[in-house]
Design a protein around this nucleic acid. Structure first.
Lengths: 227, 227
DNA sequence: ACAGATATCGAACACAGTGTTCAGTTATAG
DNA sequence: CTATAACTGAACACTGTGTTCGATATCTGT
């Protein structure tokens, strides 16, 4: 494959991300991206249909990296419900480190799109272990609803944290998240989710891979599909 | 005040709302509104800065109606934490009745703006009774965080319900909401929020005023401020 | 190193939507 | 009835989008 393709896409993705931190996603025009990336107009449209597709290409690329990382250090130590609760602390830590970017993204109207993406991503990640975890078919609240709810809870705390300039450390946010949601989860799905299990799992897998999020600045080729 | 003002604004708001149910907020152009409302272009801009302001004017008007209704039948029977948990069932019922409109609004990107508005509205409504309810200053989770979270939880269940074509009746949704969030609230704020209190309150105030939401089609003059 | 393929360039274009202006025409309030 | 104020509608400048195409630069495979 042609080296120019990866180079051009990387330039455009970097341009987009740096612009997002400066003026927010909504305010960015294609021309802004072109100027910053120093790329021709027609080149942009040769790669992406529009601004949104450029953004999503970055997310999809990241997802690939993340899953790869999950696979590499997973499997061995990942318990029955490995990838759900235990990585939340890492998620808070990572979000705090990249708070400028996340705040610029999550605050604006555009955030809706990205939050939906994140929601779906976390939902897919959690629904499987949840289903495996719960023996009885009859739960007080359907697993799908409970999973949707707990992901929304996590994202809402993230947003609150960012919008209030992170007045607590990630550890405290993680703690609050557990205090708020775990009792409800137990009531909703039975009481399979034990505090001990979760703490243990958190220690075991503390370096899960959340840090891969938005490290896209340093990577090549955001788009999986061929040109 | 001139009768034409109220008439024109009502026409434009009705046009906007009917268009939202048809194609979603984002896809609507000012010209669409003008055509449907049969109003001149300059007239639109004489009243509203843009599409968003027209939308918000409707919300602000509704808020006025809602608060008025609250005041009229409130005060007498409204307990210490009257207006929070007990009207949630009504909220689900009302949302279900107007599901077409709500789904069109909440689904699209535009939803972000409206959800933020709703979130703030419900937050403001809940934060006062929550503060009054909790004696001790030291709670496991700050009241602001817990309130933000529980409002997000409510909205997330609403959205799930709408997006999945309302597979459960409002009563079931209300029940699930309580099962998911109440244990966490107790853990977070102490255990002042007793199940009994909430059920009692729900019966007492079952006709609180949630039904006023989006009944704006039939009202005059969306905008409180003078032209 | 060379040839063919292909990615990029950049300027021009049609298009859609926004928000403003202003002189002329109604409808309203008092 | 009249002065006031709201509405009209067409024209305008402006910003941004997405497409096209011949010319140029760069890469891959041999």
């Amino acid at each position: 494959m042609d080296r120019r393709i990866g180079r051009t896409r990387k330039l455009m993705q970097e341009a987009l991300m740096s612009l997002i931190t400066e003026k927010g996603y909504e305010a960015i025009t294609v021309q802004d991206i072109l100027d910053r990336a120093d790329v021709g107009r027609s080149t942009f449209y040769a790669h992406y249909r529009d601004k949104d597709e450029l953004l999503f290409s970055g997310f999809e690329h990241l997802r690939g990296l993340f899953e790869q990382q999950q696979r590499s250090l997973g499997a061995a130590q990942q318990g029955e419900h490995g990838a759900d609760f235990n990585m939340i602390l890492e998620l808070f830590r990572h979000t705090g480190q990249n708070h400028k970017l996340y705040k610029a993204i999550a605050g604006k109207q555009s955030g809706e799109m990205i939050l939906k993406y994140l929601h779906r991503y976390l939902y897919d990640m959690m629904i499987v272990p949840h289903k495996a975890l719960v023996k009885s078919k009859k739960t007080a609240v359907p697993i799908e609803v409970a999973t949707h709810w707990i992901v929304s809870s996590l994202l809402s705390l993230m947003i609150w944290w960012l919008e209030n300039n992170m007045p607590f450390p990630p550890e405290r946010m993680d703690e609050m998240f557990r205090q708020l949601t775990m009792p409800g989860m137990e009531a909703a799905l039975g009481r399979k989710v034990q505090k001990r299990d979760i703490d243990k799992a958190a220690i075991v897998k503390k370096d899960s891979g959340a840090k891969a999020f938005y490290s896209m600045f340093v990577d090549q080729e955001g788009r999986p599909e061929g040109s």
